[in-house]
């Protein structure tokens, strides 16, 4: 529900805090550990949880997130299992907003109507579909809006003023500012340029702005948090799964990182 996302940003605002939005891929490296990680995130300081729906050909993502998608797919992950994870998460947590992120084909394949019905049922709050720009999002976006779910749109360094207005007309929850022209986890953003862009957008809308892509350190988060409403981290967390074959250490390391990041927003 959009309202859960709205409440999250409003509550944080009262204490002058920003949202830490963490991304992990569902089913990476396997169902059980992935569920455990997601359940542990709020306690470690994640304010909003973004869950990736694995896709074989994630063309806007870098090697880290592509590899995490493949680990999940190879472990036998399916769309239904993503839904099961969220259902299980919601049994203990009705507060933290959940955003599903992915590419259109697995959703189209599942059936847009069935997909929406299902995510309403399990209390997902918003959806990001990377390859549905405003020109192509009607078939999903309108149905989401009437179901009071957020369709979170991306604004990038290539988005000009005309497009920005078009995007702002149909956005809810928060706006995702992509801090680089590039793929996830690749080059580092020029934070000054990001700040200018975010300030420019803020003159046109009151909707919260989250910034992501290429943000890897506590210092980045502090700086971005000083002007944005939320900071999104993904590749840096997903890399921990790749670099640690022993599952026992993965959870501790990821949660340690999330705590460190949470202390900076």
């Amino acid at each position: 529900m959009t309202v859960r996302i709205d409440n999250c940003f409003e509550t944080l605002k009262l204490t002058n805090k920003k949202a830490l939005i963490t991304f992990l891929t569902a089913g990476d490296p396997n169902y059980d550990l992935s569920l455990e990680l997601i359940k542990s995130l709020p306690e470690a300081g994640a304010d909003i949880i973004e869950i990736g729906m694995p896709f074989s050909d994630p063309m806007a993502d870098g090697p880290a997130i592509q590899a995490s998608s493949l680990r999940a797919i190879n472990s036998g992950h399916k769309m239904e299992k993503t839904f099961e994870m969220i259902e299980s998460f919601r049994k203990d947590n009705s507060r933290t907003p959940i955003i599903l992120m992915g590419y259109f084909n697995p959703i189209y394949n599942y059936g847009v109507d069935s997909f929406i019905e299902k995510i309403i049922d399990i209390e997902v709050d918003g959806v990001i579909v990377v390859d549905l720009p405003p020109e192509e999002d009607n078939e999903l976006c309108n149905a989401l809006e009437s179901a009071d779910l957020s369709f979170i749109r991306l604004v990038t360094p290539t988005t000009d003023a005309d497009r920005l207005n078009k995007i702002l007309q149909k956005t809810s929850g928060f706006l995702y500012y992509v801090s680089i022209a590039g793929i996830t986890g690749s080059k580092r953003p020029e934070i000054n340029e990001v700040e200018n862009a975010v300030q420019e957008i803020k003159t046109k809308t009151n909707i919260p702005i989250g910034v992501g892509f290429g943000i890897r350190t506590k210092e980045d988060i502090e700086r971005v948090g000083s002007f944005a409403d939320g900071v999104i981290v993904g590749s840096v967390l997903v890399d921990i799964i790749k670099n640690n074959e022993h599952e026992s250490s993965v959870k501790d390391k990821i949660m340690k990182k999330v705590r460190e990041f949470a202390s900076a927003v």
């Binding site: 806007a60 405003p134 991306l154 990038t156 022209a181």
Partner: peptide, 12 residues
Amino acid sequence: GGRFVAETLMPL
């Protein structure tokens, strides 16, 4: 057909 690309590419 259509234009199913990330926003970064749309203006291009």
